[in-house]
Design a protein around this nucleic acid. Structure first.
Lengths: 143, 143
DNA sequence: GCGTCAATTTAGACTCTGTCTAGACTGAAC
DNA sequence: GTTCAGTCTAGACAGAGTCTAAATTGACGC
């Protein structure tokens, strides 16, 4: 059981409602707006950036709705939460397993190029726990 | 140049001033207190936990001093900043290269057991940047 | 000992991200 | 058209961390 449906950007705006529904997310106007922004391409956006894009697009949603919706999307597997710098969370619409470069100096975030990084000899999780996900972040500084 | 001095816990309280000085950190009463707490053993503490320990030890320092001192210690290489869960930063006094398990459900943080995890095929950092550090966090949930 | 000066510490105001609450809105079912 | 659960909203609130301006410390030269 549990064949995870995966949504791969770019998704056209008119296909967003179906994409949400396919993950069991009830479709509402605000969710479609936010989904359309995230799924336009593979990207990393913070809640604040999502809200700015909403306004730029002439739409809007309250702060609580933006946060609730992003949290819901993450739980449903539409996007991935990235904890990178302690001051805010990013939401990543690239569904593939991949890792990140983070430029500490200017706050920019890049995907690793597709070279096949491998983690070997990963220890088994502590007694009583099970693996959720593995995050690899390579911090870089501007030379 | 730049042979990095490394301080390995446990460090006895009376040896803390020399340890700080050896990293070019000016010795003050507050820094010795905070250093003694962190270096008592290899551990991960948040700023809040450090301040609680200070009070428990009958010492004290203002919030600003705790934050400034922890930031200074991290820049000087005495401890490592760990960004784990977006709501606070941990400071790790284990100087060896190692990775972490984070239990999402209860917020506990463990070091990987010493099994030699290896990351291979790490891509080179983007043009104009150089590698700072690599963080690997394995998120687990309570079964 | 005494003044000077830079570094450090302090309290508390402030900022920012994110959460909570209570009420309003929506739309499907009957 | 009433009901009801789910959703959305504004705005209050919470917690981590930063900033500011003043006070304290302690090293140094006299």
């Amino acid at each position: 059981m549990n064949v995870k449906k995966i949504i791969i950007p770019p998704v056209r705006r008119e296909d967003v409602p179906a994409a949400l529904a396919s993950l069991g997310i009830a479709v509402t106007a605000q969710r479609v707006e936010i989904g359309a922004i995230l799924l336009e391409s593979m990207q990393h956006l913070s809640a604040e950036q999502v809200q700015a894009r909403l306004e730029a697009d002439g739409a809007s949603a309250s702060k609580a709705t933006v946060y609730n919706t992003l949290g819901l999307f993450a739980r449903k597997g539409l996007v991935r939460e990235l904890v990178i710098d302690g001051s805010r969370v990013f939401y990543d619409s690239n569904p593939s397993d991949h890792f990140h470069f983070y430029n500490v100096d200017d706050g920019t975030l890049f995907d690793f190029p597709s070279s096949p990084v491998t983690l070997s000899n990963l220890p088994t999780p502590p007694e009583g726990t099970k693996l959720d996900k593995v995050d690899v972040v390579v911090r870089v500084t501007t030379k």
